[in-house]
Write a protein that binds this DNA or RNA. Sequence first.
DNA 1: CTGAAAGCGCTAACAC
DNA 2: GTGTTAGCGCTTTCAG
Lengths: 335, 335
Amino acid sequence: MIKLSDIAAKAGVSESTVSRALADSPLVNQKTKDLVQQLAREAGYKVNLVARNLRVQSTRTIGLVVPQVANPYYPKLIQLVADRVKEAGYRLQLHLSGADQESESDCLTSLYEHRADGVLLVTAVNGLVTKSQVESLVASGTPVVLLGWVEGAEHLDLVMADDARGGYMVGKHLVDLGHRDIAVIGARPHRGPFDRLSGFQKALNESGITPNLVSSARSDEEVQAVIHDLVSLPKPPTAIFAYQDFVAALVFKHLGAACISIPDQISVVGFDNLDLGTYICPQLTTVDLPADQIAAEAVNLVLARTQNADDDANPKRIVVSPELILRESCAPPRR
Amino acid sequence: MIKLSDIAAKAGVSESTVSRALADSPLVNQKTKDLVQQLAREAGYKVNLVARNLRVQSTRTIGLVVPQVANPYYPKLIQLVADRVKEAGYRLQLHLSGADQESESDCLTSLYEHRADGVLLVTAVNGLVTKSQVESLVASGTPVVLLGWVEGAEHLDLVMADDARGGYMVGKHLVDLGHRDIAVIGARPHRGPFDRLSGFQKALNESGITPNLVSSARSDEEVQAVIHDLVSLPKPPTAIFAYQDFVAALVFKHLGAACISIPDQISVVGFDNLDLGTYICPQLTTVDLPADQIAAEAVNLVLARTQNADDDANPKRIVVSPELILRESCAPPRR
DNA sequence: CTGAAAGCGCTAACAC
DNA sequence: GTGTTAGCGCTTTCAG
């Protein structure tokens, strides 16, 4: 593995000169610079970053930890973050925390051991399981910014989508269409007052309505059971708010199996704006979380902290607004 | 940032002893070991891997480069590879090559500069654009294994799915059901003789049939146009082979819009076995590429090369077989 | 069982 | 402009 001294020998100059020449430093004679660069190219020399990083005490690496990569929301975010990070001249180190506590901790440890310059952390549904570890990371000088709301983390930098606002939009849309019997299907909320469900309920409350059914269902079987119960009701709901798009897709499937047509008999709204929503028929009305804004804000923030460009000690909280995407799965209720 | 010498000072021993104690070496007295470990824990000491990696001349890092993360096949693969790599005590460094040549080259360069111990490379549709670079990587002692067939790379290690065999299964299934008029929709083949399309055609040829239409269409609009043309035919095909699942989903959508029922009027088969296929109605008959086997084989191979456990100079070629997943989107043609 | 010393490959004062 | 030197934080001979 060819190194600096090798090409220094070839060129008949010192290592420092080679180092400078390759960094295109103005402190070196153009002729030696050309010579060195040419020699390096010919020899296929590439700097050893592990050595350089040790020397300069920086890795120009930003860590990103996400629970998993299978859930289609994450790939979008990962791609966007990767692009922004690269653009800024940094490198991304992705870690999959697998949604369990132990491995979230492992990711953070690994990032610290590799001396990442900053970390972006997307917590799993169970919230921030490693708060103290994050705090010590920050204390040790590695900025951490949280992606998504986490309970009891008010002292940490945070970039989040305004889920509650998205939920409110959904609720308002359905109410405005004339719906009064509305069911909710999906996971239990985990973002407390900032949850999409809380905004949704607020919208209904403003019109004096309460959701007539809130079921926790995520798997195919669970959704099937819930839909079965719902359509067996003497007076089934006229609209369903699915907590996530993929749940909405399951709702579509089982509503279809029960010969209930969307949106004629029941309107359906999702949340997340996955591509999936455009592949199903009718196309799904949903809420788009602006992953691009989140990625951009998060990367900017963590880099600002890294470079001490922003030495404001107060935690930053950046909230970006979602958008209601009107497609084909909603209509006024039939009378 | 606390380092080895700090805790050596605290413990009143030398750095070497601390290093050994933390590595749980048998060469150190149990009592000093306990003391050192406790002190290290209290102080929150974590090894600096960039220093260690420089010293030991290894990073225990495997690079994985994939074109993108948005295409749903990749997340599956990434997750699987990440799990296997971690299991083996290595770390994964993911790079997104963005499907363009320049950045595939950048990824490889970055991996080399960081001295990854091995790399797994998934090439984009345009084939291996950086063959010479891969070769010099290998020559410099970093094993590279290709994931997926690449033209003119017979001298490199390769793990691939037998796409042609999958295509054959699809063709045979359709023919066995009685179909004679079969259209193909999707991308142009890029795996030459190993392409799913070549296997598909072989199956038809064995029964003296030729596909009556092969259209290249990937976007929503393109598929819409193709479907429109197809159903306007005096004698429309009775079955459609979509080159990829997401194309199949689009086919579903536009067939639905044209009031053609699946599988009564037209059977549809996909390829890839994305989750998507179970969300649509009827559920999609498709071919599953065994991502878990591919991941396992690839990681095993690259690690074996890394550790010189396998110093066979001959390139390895591991081919894993796909599986036909029978679901609801196919039926015999109506007479 | 423990310590002293060397050195991984590179960059950056500091001299000349 | 260029070379000499020191040192980033760690592991690992080699002595004792």
